[in-house]
């Protein structure tokens, strides 16, 4: 499964693309694509949202969580820093 993600232009926050073409901060509310052609077509559409978001791209998801080779990066993007002054307790090293 794939989901389109980007950063919001005004504040840089992580967002995911919804079925209606809008954007959400909640991954589980994002549109999921089962086929590459559909994902690529939606990504091409998302590129026109340049007044709303920056740099849309596709990520792998499984069971509504980031997966694949970029899993650590995308989990951190989804839930915030895993450590530091705003520790969210995502993953212990």
């Amino acid at each position: 499964m794939k989901v389109i993600t980007a950063n919001r232009l005004a504040d840089g926050r992580v967002v995911y693309r919804c079925k209606n073409g809008g954007w959400t901060e909640t991954l589980t509310k994002a549109e999921q694509f089962t086929d590459d052609a559909g994902a690529d077509a939606a990504l091409a559409e998302a590129a026109f949202d340049h007044l709303t978001v920056v740099g849309p791209y596709l990520i792998d998801v499984e069971e509504q969580k980031p997966s694949g080779q970029k899993i650590v990066r995308e989990r951190i993007r989804e839930t915030g820093p895993s450590a530091g002054s705003l520790h969210t307790g995502l993953v212990e090293v």
Partner: peptide, 8 residues
């Protein structure tokens, strides 16, 4: 101003 993972 950079654009990082979660924010600018």
């Amino acid at each position: 101003v950079y654009l990082q993972l979660h924010a600018y």
